[in-house]
Amino acid sequence: MYGEYVLRRLGTMLLVIFLAISINFLLPRLMPGDPVEAQLNQLMATGGGVSDITAMVESYRARFGLDQPLLSQYFAYWQSIFRLDLGVSLAAYPEKVTDAIAGGLPWTLGLLGFATLVSFLVGSLLGGLMGWPRTPKALRIFGNGVVVLSSVPYFLVGMILLYVFAIVLRWFPAGGGIPFGLQLGFNWPTVSAVLWHATLPAISIIAAEIGAWALGMRGMLVSVLGDDYIALADAKGLKPGRIFLRYGMRNALLPQLTKLALALGHIVSGAILVEVIFSYPGIGFRLYQAIQSKDYFVIQGIVLLLSVSIAIAMFILDLIYPLIDPRITAKGK
């Protein structure tokens, strides 16, 4: 049964990836005009390095085979995808798009991974406590405040934090990933500088994300607490703390995990703008720079990376759930 479940999930993932790549191919071609050619012409009119332009046009022609019919262009596109060739950056020629993306990836993965993990754990615990009858009132009020904060887009929280803690109080750096001119290496100055710069962006994501987890967890815990085995545990005289953690939280946490997959797209979208606000050198900030300089190949590459990686992440989460909760494979029918 697990095999059939895995196959179905695999099918969904491949369909999503197929559609994402096809949309990425089709959308620019459906748009009126040819912005890339316009960009190249503009570069040629103003550009100093004219010798490079011909190479760019060549790579551009080779990449799209513009004289060929749409269908063969489509196949050629797939071939280049499998060769991991996403073209060259127009703004930072001759940097490859894959290199531009690879440069930003570790920053984004580190920031997002850490912030998502922390907000998931803290938010779930807070939500559980909000649904637990013995929780002090002050914590409940605090929890409701956090929930309201979660309705605000991440980057607005980031702007306020940036102003208060980096401009007015000057406790944290005002942007970037590392201090200017620092030699990267695996040593303490590098690690501390990276953490120092990541603190405010991480807090903006965490502050805006905790409430969403808390809201879901509160609802789940309240419904779990209504179950018979909780009444039984209570009647047996088990300690409240034990009932809360082992009987309540443990069972309420499972649906939270399923929500993690659905929230991924939302978290990634939110994090893009946080990176922009803090000039944090990840994928989101590169996307912003690419939009500013109309660097279409980089925009396409990043959009493709986002769609494909979220599809893969959801597939991995889908594989893990049934191992935690065997009911899921049966329920999927």
């Binding site: 369909l15 959308l27 797209g265 939302h266 990634v268 979208s269 396409q300």
Partner: peptide, 24 residues
């Protein structure tokens, strides 16, 4: 159903960026 599932998976902002960046 599959269409809405797929659309929920692909991060909306990615497609929006793609479309919006091509609109003159």
């Amino acid at each position: 159903r599959v269409a809405s599932d797929v659309m929920m998976t692909i991060p909306g902002i990615a497609i929006l960026v793609l479309v919006a960046s091509y609109v003159r």
